[in-house]
Computed example of a mutant assay.
Amino acid sequence: MSMPGALKVAILATDGYEQAELLEPKQALEDAGIAVHVISNKDGVIQGYRDSDKADTVSVDLNFSQAHPEDYDALVLPGGVLNSDAIRQLPEAQIFVRQVEAAGKPIAVICHGAWLMISADVIRGRTLTSYPSLRDDIRNAGGIWLDQDVVTDRNLVSGRNPDSLPAFNQALLAAIHHPAEPARWAN
């Protein structure tokens, strides 16, 4: 657990993350005085993308063997097709997501980031949005997919794509500051 009053959020990502979907939530959290750790399967830096073009790199704070879900108050899962397809295959990433979900802590997922939640088997019975191409994946995993910019279902905040980031960041901060609130729906 983090120190009282000192909130801490984990962002799980690897090479191929969609730059805006990692950097904008990270900045919104830091601007709110929340500590953020980028956690990955590798040390050093990870490569971001804007669509299919290489963008900036981000420093990794901890690798999965160093990070513990119980140390965080919330979790952010950015998208990016390459990132999402790679990270969903990592057992340690799946375990991290399952433990955060089991603790009922806020999880914010955007775009293709839902693939990790599907692989971690935490979508069943949950309502969320994503990039439209994941609609069938979410439904096949037992989830309910909505075609909205942002959806909040209990501790789960989901966003459709980078255009959803302003509303997504607002919903993420609300979920962190009011984690016990019942389901809210946002467009």
Rank of each mutant, 00 (worst) to 15 (best):
A102L: 05
Q19A: 13
D149Q: 11
P132S: 01
L172V: 10
G44W: 14
V150F: 03
A120Q: 08
F64T: 06
L75A: 01
P162E: 03
A108G: 05
E181A: 15
D31I: 07
E30A: 14
Q148F: 08
P25L: 11
V60M: 12
D43G: 09
I34M: 04
D15H: 04
Q99I: 04
V100T: 02
V109T: 09
I138T: 06
V45L: 15
R124N: 08
L146F: 02
G80S: 09
N63Y: 10
Y17M: 03
Y49M: 15
A6H: 11
W185T: 13
D136A: 05
I176V: 10
D147W: 05
G113S: 08
A35Q: 10
D56E: 15
E70N: 11
H177V: 11
L173S: 09
Q94S: 05
N187F: 05
I95N: 08
V150C: 02
I39Q: 01
N41S: 11
G80D: 07
L7K: 09
P132Q: 03
A74R: 02
Q47N: 05
L62C: 04
T127I: 02
P106K: 04
G48T: 07
P91C: 13
G113A: 12
V151E: 01
I176L: 14
L29Q: 03
D121E: 15
N63H: 07
T129N: 00
G143Y: 03
V109E: 09
D149W: 11
P78I: 09
A28M: 15
L77I: 10
I107D: 01
A141P: 06
A32Y: 06
T129V: 01
D163Y: 04
H112N: 14
G16R: 02
Y49A: 13
E181Q: 15
D51W: 14
D71H: 15
I138D: 03
M3Y: 13
P91G: 10
W185G: 13
A114R: 06
V100F: 01
D56A: 14
T152D: 12
S59E: 15
Q89Y: 10
L128K: 00
D53W: 13
P4K: 14
K8A: 11
L75E: 03
P78N: 12
V97A: 05
I123V: 05
S2M: 10
V150K: 03
E24S: 07
D147Q: 04
S133P: 05
I107E: 05
V109N: 07
S119W: 03
R184L: 10
R124G: 08
M117D: 08
L7T: 04
Y49V: 08
A13D: 04
V36Y: 00
D43M: 14
Q27I: 12
P69K: 03
W185P: 07
L90V: 14
N169F: 14
